[in-house]
Amino acid sequence: MVRLNPYLSFQGKAREALEFYRSFLGGEVEISTYGSMPGMTDDPAEQDLVMHGQLETDHGLTLMAADNPSSMPYVAPSSGVTVALTGGPDDLEYVQAAVTALSDGATDVMPFEKAPWGDHYGQLTDRYGVSWMFDVGPA
């Protein structure tokens, strides 16, 4: 089965971000560091940075992330790319919990509430600069 998954870039915050996302999305985080892969970086200060991290949730969500070492250009999250967390009426409580957690330290917040078209909708930019959109449709 082919899957399309968000892959987020960080500068030294990938582990922290994945653990934060796990705190409300649930699931397990797996992390490989640059130090665990010989030849990935020669800088001793970068050995513990996340080369690849992955959060797999019980809801079937996958969120991946990595830290950029100094040898690679860093591309900050942009408002042109948004992580969308969507679902149906049975997912309303789960999505609301995610919105509540992500709102701590967030900017550009559009409240998650009933929209004119009938869905619950909202958006924000989280404390790490990642844009999120939320939509829960009716039955």
Rank of each mutant, 00 (worst) to 15 (best):
F112H: 08
P89Y: 06
A106W: 08
A17H: 04
A45V: 09
S79M: 00
Q96D: 15
S78Y: 00
V109F: 01
E46V: 06
E28V: 15
A101Y: 01
V99F: 15
L55C: 07
E56N: 15
S103Y: 10
N68R: 13
V83W: 02
E113P: 02
H59S: 11
Q47W: 12
P38Y: 03
S103K: 03
S70C: 00
G60H: 02
K114G: 01
Q96S: 15
Q96N: 14
V99I: 02
D43C: 02
Y21E: 02
S103R: 06
L102W: 07
L92F: 08
G105C: 07
S78T: 15
G105P: 14
P38A: 03
P77W: 02
V50W: 01
D67I: 12
I31W: 01
A115P: 00
P77H: 05
G88V: 05
P73H: 08
P116A: 10
R22M: 03
T41C: 04
G118M: 06
G53L: 05
M64N: 08
P111T: 09
P111R: 11
Q96T: 15
G35L: 01
D67S: 09
D67V: 09
A97H: 12
W117I: 10
T86N: 13
P111K: 10
Y74Q: 11
G87W: 12
D91H: 06
P111M: 12
G27C: 07
P89R: 08
L61Y: 05
L25N: 01
L61D: 07
P111C: 07
E30Q: 15
G39W: 13
V109M: 03
S79A: 06
A76E: 15
P77N: 08
E16G: 03
E16D: 13
P73A: 09
A97N: 14
G39L: 12
F112M: 12
D91C: 04
D43P: 00
D108M: 06
S103N: 06
V50Y: 02
T62D: 12
E113T: 10
D108S: 11
G35N: 04
Q54H: 06
A84C: 10
G88W: 10
Y34K: 11
P116L: 07
G60Y: 04
D43W: 05
L18N: 02
V29R: 09
E19Q: 15
T100L: 13
T86D: 13
A65Y: 01
V99W: 09
D58V: 06
D58S: 13
D58R: 10
D42G: 14
L92I: 05
M51K: 12
G35S: 02
E30A: 12
D58A: 11
Y21V: 00
Q54W: 02
L102K: 05
K114P: 01
E30V: 13
